[in-house]
Design a protein around this nucleic acid. Structure first.
Lengths: 344, 344
DNA sequence: CTGAAAGCGCTTACAG
DNA sequence: CTGAAAGCGCTTACAG
């Protein structure tokens, strides 16, 4: 295999000498022509491989041509996505990789089938893919896996096939920490304003929430558990629902910062004070949490680090390195700001 | 300009004949070498363009490939950049173009010279470049222009060379509108908390501000005019400076939403009420303006539209279409929210 | 099927 | 800064 010394320039002439044939013959083999005897071809192929011959085109194309990794988002509209992207870009710059961006939500009804897209990636010599919080199903990932394209999935909404590498954060532990913080403050009626029901990361956060409640002997109540998209509108709607309950919660754990911001906005509209009347915890720890009013207590995910890790894993797969694990989970940690306080 | 019949094979020799120079000279131009007289280069470039010459490498690289446009940011850390990017991506999906993202701020001291990067773009069959709010100087753009790489600059910090297409917004009119709004409310002591002094867009906003003041017979006062980067820290610092003045302004026009958010944060810290004590207007109209507390009155720029327009212009240059204009300025408009009110 | 010879398209080195 | 000349690496056409 080892194309020895990709030294200065291996020319067709050199191959010809090495294989004991003429240059035109080597040329024919290289160009896949058929009028070459089988054993002649074999000799030439051996010489080509041994010397690591590259056509001038290939030479120029690989000379200083950097690997291209495609990053796929459903949409790029949140601080979450931007931070992940920045992590990818940072590591890309450091490791001399180029980043191609693809937003599937906009892919006007994706004119290209996934088969075609996967084939194109191969044809164009791309090196790998990073798929971020996308709803790609296992079946949809298949055309890429079949072509051995290195893929890493960040926080997939669907559980990825066993052999696909995924990067995420310790969602369960984060959900538990957020809830434990509220319990510590003395809250007992704590709502979970969740993300998409099916999403892995949402389920992990929800179960962390339930674990914390159960560990403290607080019953888990259905009416306090809602779900919806990771968007502020969901926070607004959820807040309205919760405020109509007879026994309002005194604290809300929102499954994302964007949801939490919706809660804050609706609270402001209804003259409900945060944290005096209701405490709010978010999840993500983007800069939005810092800049909100009041600044949001939130479970911080190392989003940039997740982006960097994803690219690192793509590059490792490219090089054919063995991976220690198919799943990397980076630590989350609770950052307490001003949106949480003891209940009134 | 129409690269006529990209027929069979246009050779360097043909170009040489057409341009009335020797083949080596054509070779130099094609390879972006600098030892060619300006008018010789011009003749050759004309011939190249007319015939639609492609190097063997390019020929192979562009066969059946979609155009790749490189989008260059200094950093991608603001809602501004993300919205522009989304505009580019949207139009890219619609017109079957791929987007490559490059963050120069991270380009670890850019190992590659600009010459090399420009040559690579040509070699790899890339089609064009969009440079966003970058501090690229005319000289830095030169390696790209010399190679006829279609470039469009969005809101450049430095005025671009005359033949480079740029996309921006009506900054002057926006600055004037923001200031007029404050004047209409009855303010007379209005500060301008500006962006980078040298930046074109900042100067336009500043002059719009001054024009509005002068039209209303309000004197322009040096002490009310500050400058700094388009970042919230600049808003914080500027707010501190303004609050120390003996005659505090009753209103602040911030040259970007991020600056305005810094003003809001510092006001909150110092228990100054917005808009009761001081009115604040921002610039950009990103979602941050909607979500801030209080929601920010801001001059809205059509950022997505600017991204779309930039890509449209790159594609037109690629096709060799004549451009109506080297500069496109899209309209801004003032969106009044809750951060402005009559002075106390 | 093979290879000597001619040829192609481009680049390089260098004299002017 | 320009271009005649030599050269490079590969391909083509064709005789054997």
């Amino acid at each position: 295999m080892a194309s020895s010394e990709s030294s200065a320039k291996v020319t067709l002439a050199a191959i010809a000498r090495e294989a004991g044939v003429s240059m035109p013959t080597v040329s024919k083999v290289v160009n896949g022509r058929e009028d070459v005897a089988a054993d002649t071809r074999a000799k030439v192929l051996t010489a080509l491989e041994r010397t690591g011959y590259k056509s001038p085109l290939q030479r120029k194309n690989t000379a200083g041509r950097r690997p291209v990794v495609e990053v796929v988002f459903d949409t790029l509209n949140s601080a979450y996505g931007v931070e992940v992207l920045n992590g990818v870009l940072e590591h890309a710059a450091a490791s001399d990789v180029e980043v191609l961006l693809n937003i599937t939500g906009q892919q006007s009804a994706s004119k290209l089938s996934l088969e075609q897209r996967a084939q194109r990636i191969v044809d164009e010599g791309r090196s790998g893919m990073i798929v971020v919080t996308s709803a790609f199903s296992s079946a949809q990932l298949d055309p890429f896996r079949r072509r051995q394209i290195p893929i890493v999935v960040i926080d997939p909404l669907n559980p990825p096939p066993g052999d696909v590498v995924s990067v995420g954060a310790s969602n369960w532990a984060g959900g538990k920490a957020a809830t434990a913080h509220l319990l510590d403050l003395g809250h007992r009626r704590i709502a979970y304003l969740g993300g998409p029901e099916g999403a892995e990361c949402n389920q992990a956060r929800l179960h962390g929430y339930m674990a914390a409640l159960m560990a403290n002997g607080v019953p888990v109540e259905e009416r306090y558990i809602l779900s919806g998209p990771f968007r502020s509108e969901n926070g607004v709607a959820g807040m309205k629902t919760l405020l109509q309950l007879e026994e309002r919660p005194t604290a809300i754990f929102a499954a994302s910062d964007s949801i939490a911001l919706g809660v804050l906005a609706e609270a402001r509209r209804q003259k409900i004070r945060i944290p005096e009347d209701i405490s709010v915890v978010g999840f993500d720890g983007t800069y939005q949490a810092e800049e909100s009013v009041p600044p949001l207590t939130s479970v911080s995910q190392p989003l940039q680090e997740m982006g960097r890790a994803a690219l690192r894993f793509v590059l490792r797969q490219m090089r054919g390195d063995a991976l220690d694990s198919r799943r990397v989970e980076l630590a989350t940690h609770l950052v307490v700001r001003e949106s949480t306080a003891p209940p009134a």
